[in-house]
């Protein structure tokens, strides 16, 4: 492999991006500041030896699994939901939040439980493990609405501060798992570009350790 080949990094647009690019800069990777506001979809940073693909967060594991990107940054929530065959190399410790079961404060067991969520796989698996058979309803946004208008008796969603829940009179009933962003790698890239990926991993790991 030529040493000059850029490492293709799939970056999630939005919430995680700002924290991830800050972490990369702290780790001494020269990523230009004006990246943060660009609308371009592919951005090259040859001085850092990388090229960034700006992707919708749920698509990041797909890009990486197929090798369209060598590595990627993605929330554990997406990894759990998408269940792709990729290496999960590093817990970046950023974008911390949790996956929880949420409902109205006066929730009581119902005859035909219905759970609304953006994460149908996560929700089904969790309730199966709990020995409960529930009907999972996939929604794409404003999940909090579902219990308020009687579409579902509970929801499974990501909780960061809990502000939205409080404002809508909902309570967190149970935490399913904690979420942070992860560094993931393609199976082949991890071997073919191991030097570059391992050294990036080491730098990030040192930076994360210094933060803690």
């Amino acid at each position: 492999m030529s040493g000059r080949e850029l490492l293709k990094v799939a970056m999630p647009k939005g919430r995680i991006y700002k924290q991830a690019s800050k972490l990369f800069r702290e780790a001494g990777l020269p990523i230009p500041e004006d990246f943060d506001d660009t609308r371009k979809l592919i951005i090259e940073a040859p001085e850092a030896g990388m090229s960034f693909i700006m992707a919708k967060p749920v698509d990041v594991p797909t890009y990486v699994e197929y090798g369209a990107a060598d590595i990627g940054i993605v929330g554990k929530d997406v990894l759990m939901e998408e269940n792709k065959d990729v290496y999960e190399l590093l817990d970046l410790g950023i974008a911390k939040c949790r996956m929880s079961v949420i409902g109205l404060p006066d929730w009581k067991p119902v005859m035909h439980p219905r759970v609304a969520t953006k994460y149908p796989n996560v929700a089904s698996q969790f309730f199966r493990e709990q020995g409960q058979q529930v009907e999972v309803i996939k929604l794409n946004g404003s999940i909090e609405l579902a219990p308020m208008i009687g579409l579902a008796d509970r929801i499974v969603d990501m909780v960061e501060t809990g502000q939205t829940l409080r404002e809508n009179g909902l309570v967190e009933m149970q935490t399913i798992f904690g979420i942070t962003s992860r560094l993931i790698a393609n199976r082949v890239s991890y071997r073919m570009k191991n030097g570059a990926i391992q050294s990036l991993c080491d730098r990030l790991q040192a930076t994360i350790a210094a933060r803690a």
């Binding site: 492999m1 699994e65 090798g67 199976r187």
Partner: peptide, 9 residues
């Protein structure tokens, strides 16, 4: 075995 330019073994 892994080949350059292909995401799968």
């Amino acid at each position: 075995g892994y080949a350059a330019d292909l995401g799968f073994p």
